[in-house]
Amino acid sequence: MAANETAKDEQAAADFTLAELCIAAAARAWAADGELLASGLGTAPRLAAGLAWLTLNPDLMMTDSECMLVGEPVPPGPRGDYRLKVEGWLPFRAIFDLIAGGRRHAMTMPTQIDRYGGTNISVIGDYTRPKVALLGVRGIPGNTINHPCSFFIPSHSTRSFVESVDMLSGVSYDPSRWPAGARREFHDYRLVVSNLAVLDFNGNDEAGIKTMRLVSTHPGVSVEQVQEATGFELALADNIVETPAPTAEQLAVLRDRLDPHNLRATVFPPAKSSAAKKG
C-alpha cells in the first residue's frame, strides 16, 4: 500500500505551543514504517502516533491503549459518547508475540538515556538500595532488542541525558554491552524528541559506534543550549535546522480530533515550557 505519500505542502502554522511542535516532530518517527503497530506510551507519544497515522502514514495500526485494535486513533481522556471503532483484539499475550515478531515501533519516555541510546526506567542510584525506585524494566528489554523504538523526553537536562544510565533497561549501541553471537539487526533507534531539540542516532563516536546526534533545535533554542543540557558530547548533523513548525492541517487534526480534552497542555510542566514558545 502507498504508505508514505508526501505530506501536503501546506504553509506552516504561525501559532502553536511547544507541545504541539514536539508532537508534530515526534509523529515523523513513524512516517516511513509501513504497516505496523504504532505504540505511543504517554500522552505526547500517543498523540504523536495518532498524528502520524492521520497525516503521514495511513497504514499504521494502533490500539485503544488497552487491548483492542482500532480503526482510528482514540482521543485520550474521558470518552463521553465516543464509540471505539474496534477492528481486532490484541491482549498482552498477543502484543508480546507481535513484539518478538518485530511489527511494532514504540515511543516511550525513559527517565535516563545515554549517548548510545541505552535507557533506564528501573531505579535511580544504587541498584540494591536505590534512591528512587521507578516502575521496573517493564517490556523495555524485549522492545528495544526486537523492533524500532523512539523516545520522548519532556525535560532535557544532564539528569535525563546522562553519560551512563543507572540501570540499563533498554539495549544500547555500545557493542561492549552485547554478548557474542546475539542478533543485533532488529535493534533500531529512530528519534529522540525533547523539549529542546530533535535528535537521532546517526552520529558516530571515535570507534565508529552509533551515537545520538542533534538534528534540529526548537525555535529560540541554540545548539550550545542543547549541548549544555546534555550529559555527554552530542554528534552534530551537518546542517542543524530549526525544528519544522506543525502544518495547519496537523494542528487542526491534533486540536480538533486527536486531543479534544487538550491533554497536550499537560505534556510540559508550565515553568519549563518557556524556552521555545513561539508566538
Binding site: A100, V137, T144, I145, L168, V171, R177, W178
Partner: peptide, 21 residues
C-alpha cells in the same frame, strides 16, 4: 529461549540467567 533481556542490566543483575547458542 528469548532475545529479551540480552545486552541489558537484566542479564547483568541476574547472573543466574544463562545464555544458550
Amino acid at each position: 529461549p528469548t532475545r529479551a533481556g540480552l545486552a541489558t542490566d537484566v542479564q547483568a543483575r541476574n547472573p543466574e540467567l544463562k545464555t544458550i547458542s
